[in-house]
Amino acid sequence: MSDAEFHRGIESRVLTVVEEVLSLDAGTARRDSSIQDDLGADSLDMLSLFTALQEEFGGSVDLDEAEGMSTLEDVIAYISTRVKTAADAG
């Protein structure tokens, strides 16, 4: 799998999880969406989102990281790094 395919796969899965957690119509969550301003997510929603991302991508996702993220691009980049690191380690 190429790097581009890997990142597209992660992005697609993250956006699907975001739409499920926030009960959004399919296609509403976009890479450049602001989590708070565009999607209306508060701090508890972020906790729900990262709990769901842990389920989706495994325990290497750290709940503490949720606090510093403002766009879905941040989330996708973070998940991509964690998944790649976990794959390289093991």
């Binding site: 999880v17 499920e20 957690v21 009960s23 729900s48 709990t51 769901a52 389920e55």
Partner: peptide
């Protein structure tokens, strides 16, 4: 049950 309810 939605995704949040299943895990929470």
């Amino acid at each position: 049950a939605n995704r949040n309810e299943r895990s929470q």
